[in-house]
């Protein structure tokens, strides 16, 4: 199957922040403390793509643009990819496999523990993102598992908020967007938001 044009464009767009690193790093574009800046950069893109992935379902349901569902998996996988770069930066670049420090960090510091939890959720969702996995798990169980994406969203916002030294405006904005998306989901569920009934797009799992 040839990839469609829209998905190709989306793929390239979502890759740009990662590709930009190939230029930013050698030109000192990340400043004089590039590893720390890299933590922020990859964390920011991970949460942004996670939010985008969370927005697909309500946006599609409210607008009736069912085509949007086609992009959900790819965006979710990109959120995982940036999360992976973020964790790679932490484990390899920041602490260079200093397992003792890393384990202590995860155990002792709630913001790291939560980040780890979010990462594990994204990992589980990425691993089970194929059609084959939907079939193997059964639609019901698959769906139950993939609802964890909301927990990941809330966790990511909490992780961001706790990581900030001063002025939590930015993480609160991200958190508010995630809360709004969650609320939209609940309202949709209880038919409190206007929506168009959309049949499932063939081949792509769609939540009720």
């Amino acid at each position: 199957m040839r990839p469609s044009l829209d998905k190709t464009v989306l793929f390239i767009a979502a890759s740009l922040p990662a590709l930009a690193l190939l230029w930013l790093v050698p030109t000192d574009g990340l400043g004089v403390n590039p590893i720390r800046e890299g933590m922020h950069y990859t964390g920011d893109w991970a949460i942004r793509l996670l939010i985008l992935a969370l927005a697909i379902t309500p946006a599609a349901k409210v607008s009736g643009a069912k085509k949007l569902f086609r992009y959900r998996r790819m965006i979710g996988l990109f959120a995982f990819f940036y999360g992976l770069l973020h964790v790679f930066t932490y484990v390899v670049l920041d602490h260079f496999f200093d397992v003792e420090t890393i384990i202590k960090d995860i155990a002792k510091r709630p913001f790291i523990t939560i980040g780890m939890g979010v990462f594990l959720i994204l990992l589980a969702l990425a691993v089970t993102s194929t059609h084959q996995m939907v079939r193997r798990l059964g639609a019901r169980r698959w769906q139950a598992l993939h609802r964890l994406v909301y927990l990941a969203g809330v966790g990511a916002a909490v992780h961001f908020t706790l990581s900030v030294k001063k002025d939590i405006t930015e993480p609160l904005i991200y958190g508010a967007i995630i809360a709004a998306l969650l609320l939209a989901r609940l309202l949709l569920r209880y038919e409190l938001l206007p929506r168009l009934k959309i049949p499932a797009v063939r081949g792509e799992p769609v939540e009720p």
Binding site: V32, N33, I35, L93, D94, H95, F96, R109, F111
Partner: peptide, 19 residues
Amino acid sequence: VDHPRWSQAKERRIGDFFR
């Protein structure tokens, strides 16, 4: 004595890769 959110045992000298 750690900061509540990170360890103070090591530091990164600006310009270095390893802590």
